[in-house]
Design a protein around this nucleic acid. Structure first.
Lengths: 216, 216, 216, 216
DNA sequence: CATGAATGAGTGTTCATTCAT
DNA sequence: CATGAATGAACACTCATTCAT
């Protein structure tokens, strides 16, 4: 510990970009394992194999660091989804590919997902950040539904559309939580199940079936 | 230092049970506003109009206090739902009444909901506690679906049933989040919307329609 | 716990003197087990089967309570010794009886000994209290030695006498510690051993043998 | 609040080893003066001219800090004794030099002695730590006695030997306490006195004289 | 007489953050 | 560029002590 031989400094003087990625990797890992508050900058720095002042120099305060994690993971996720669900496909195909890409991402980045949702949801400072990202997802889903509806010659009020989309996104997140907790579970199968719930429900909507509260 | 006027001691020497409720009220409020970690026992005690040692004497450590909040709010919620959805009603009626009770509860106890889900989900020590409660909800929902299915002469594998129920619960929680964030929103309407998504999707399931991934 | 049936209050309204002895018993026990600081008034009160305010009403603050324990145990011990070593016996007989009474006392009141010495020695507020008691012991022992010396026609300077007496008392305390820690040990045997060390050394002194540092 | 003049920062950024010694010095002093419980980490830190977190970073919790003090002082003492009493000397010479070194040490490190014995004896968590150290002393003394006995062609049962050694160590500690309390006392003289008591008693033992309780 | 209810004051401990080297 | 050294500020938790009933 104390006697650190100064020769062969094991990967020093790396370019800034690389170092930043190492730090973010470490941060995502530690935030995911411990939660935002319980995570300590010491542990993150140590896990990144770097000293604390460097973390501050490169990525700022703890909150900023967390936001940086959020951004990176969120962007990666959105890219994975967007890359899979090209907009020139039929609606069900788009939805399926998007869902599959999403669950694949969650399955492969369980840490990232934990940071993204489980942590961010609970801590006020990041709720906004997260809301934005989720908002984009909701928009995409609502867009798909609207597109499909119009193709059928039907139309639904924007609020209803949004709420349905919101519910679908919520159901998806819920299954993502479930997936993140079950290491052995298969992302592909989970996607299929979600597709069943989502598409069947949405299909009804597309055909104009609705439910009304009984008038007592 | 602080000149405390000695007249009208504003509610001193209350019996234990009363004080405990006051404390829980304050705790739910503060936990909800600040989050578990950011909340301080000082603030909770002050908000309850009592000294810190009393909080410890009656309700234990911070974690135990949080769990107590969880229990009280969770129990209240479950009771509200169970009381509304009597088991001798037809499936759709039960679902509808349960959902309505749920959204009414969330609308009326936005603080409690925040404590229950937003906080508990993120903090490892309480994840288990929460998982149990959610598990009970999932079971109830799955039971409803199964009951309805059998009435139609159909049957679905237990895992599929559970996942569908899980997704529905997730969707519901998501809308509850949305409701908690939109003070002006109407619980009744939100319930109706959720019912649309849930029931229409479930109805499909009931009729045996399923979706399969395209085989490329 | 909460529902305490009010009939048969198990020994209430005892006369003050009895209650005080109960409290002291409890206090000695708890102080002995936990140490002065680690002991809590709550535990003492509970162990005495009485409420805290009563303890304060009867025996004062924690420090005063500890001093009360010290006094009672110290007095008991001194009485046991004094009663055994009547001053009209020959010196060795007196010493032997005194030692035997002492080790018997320690053996029978291990708790009291722990309070008396092990606790009191370490805590400044009581060091003086204790020094007085030990001083009396040293005086008694020095008196014995002086008496025996004069009987032999010899005399020793008062400081030397005191220091020798001090050393003997120290040796005795040390063996008392040892005895208190070894529940199975026999007080009688321990007394014999101490007598060997003490008397043989003292006997030399009585006969005028002395040791001088080598002059280099 | 406290106007701290910014010039001459009085010893900042010292290497770790130095700071640790400063802390231990301060800790020994404060523990000695106040006792373990009454001592506060704040006072120790302030006395060391450093902030509390540094104390925790370098030497751990309060208990660990106390143990560290115990170790340092104990080691110093043992080294002082061992260095003085070379094993190739005659028994009485060894004993004398050992005693002298011991009392010199106590006289010069009265704080250390208080920490070592007066505090440690009373607080359960450290009793074991201390027992070990005293045990080593007892062994050394018993070894000396045994050596001398065998040289005289005599032998004594191991328990008797140990108890005698125990008594001698106890007497010595007792005089050390006395010395620590009397600032003006001369360690050299105290050592001589102890030697008289010890050696004269031991000499008797060496020559086979024993005392037996009168059979009434 | 006896007690449950109540608290002020203090302590150990942690951690994000920043200099001086 | 990189880091060990350093700290301010806060927080959970405890306990001796005292009223009001």
């Amino acid at each position: 510990m104390l006697a650190r031989v100064s020769s062969t400094p094991t990967f020093k003087r790396l370019p800034r970009a690389v170092r930043e990625q190492q730090m973010l990797d470490a941060a995502v890992k530690v935030f995911s394992r411990r939660g935002f508050h319980a995570a300590s900058m010491d542990e993150i720095a140590e896990d990144a194999g770097i000293s604390k002042p460097m973390v501050y120099a490169y990525l700022g305060t703890k909150e900023e660091l967390f936001v940086a994690c959020l951004h990176r993971e969120g962007t990666r996720m959105m890219e994975a989804i967007a890359g899979a669900a090209a907009s020139d496909l039929p609606a069900d195909e788009r939805l399926w590919r998007g869902l599959r890409a999403f669950f694949r991402f969650v399955g492969a980045h369980r840490d990232g997902w934990a940071v993204l949702y489980r942590q961010a949801r609970g801590e006020q400072p990041f709720a906004g950040e997260l809301a934005t990202m989720r908002g984009r997802l909701v928009e995409v889903v609502a867009g798909m539904l609207d597109h499909a509806l119009r193709a059928e010659g039907r139309e639904v009020g924007p609020t209803d559309l949004e709420v349905v989309a919101y519910a679908l996104v919520g159901a998806t997140e819920s299954l993502a939580d479930w997936l993140a907790d079950h290491t052995e579970a298969d992302p592909e199968k989970t996607a299929t199940r979600m597709m069943n719930v989502a598409w069947l429900g949405a299909a009804q909507l597309l055909h104009g079936t609705t439910w009304h509260p009984p008038t007592p």
